[in-house]
Amino acid sequence: MTKQLNLHLVAENKIPLLNNLINNKIDYLTSIKKAISESDYLSIYELLDSARFNEKIRHWQHADPNYFLSNMTETIQPELAEFLVPKLLAYLQIYFPFFFFREVKTGVYEILFGRWPSARTFGILDVIRIEFIFNDPVINELRDFMDDPSFVQNRDDQLKELHRANRIYAGKPGIVSEQSMQENQTEILRLQKTQAVLELEQEQIEKHFGSFSHFLEQAGHLYVDYLNFLNKEN
């Protein structure tokens, strides 16, 4: 009997706590709703991840996270991303003009480098976290092409070898030689196409960032740079 009474008291004591927790959630949702209706992008991003915002933008050392609140937005994040993306894309068009974005499903944006044929997909733009999530093999290939002379040399050697082999095949007419030549020709075309794409990517990186490392560094600062841009705009 005493035990039951104690439990009842404990439960009653929880009411203020629960009220408080629920009020926090209501306050949070009210705030984010207001920020959306006022197109207050900066506040939206702060509410989505206050610890990151305070740390990166306000430079607070030990900011408390608000995941228990921002988790509530998880189910609406695709639509939220669609709301946030036009502003972000307008910014990216200025600072990363060679990137183009294709919505592959609601709120998910694929990054295309360039508008030329065979333009490569570089990864995904995380609109909620304001981050480029690059596809490692693709970006590594560009880094090697731009920064590793042996990578380019290997490509050149490969091409030379294929051309040399074809000259030999041309002197030995026959079905096998013709097939081998055709295969080599296809490989030459593939290598040339890849090289053309890499050259175009390099051209753009050098034009806008000077070097690959500077490009990567700037791409890594997107969250801070974009929010500072919004801050200045406000």
Binding site: R115, W116, P117, S118, T186, L189, Q192, A196, E199, L200
Partner: peptide, 25 residues
Amino acid sequence: VAVSDKLFILAQANQVDIVALDDGF
């Protein structure tokens, strides 16, 4: 495809801006 690939490679080699469209170039 090889024919359009060659067009792209040559355009790039000759510094002509080539743009991919939904229905071609």
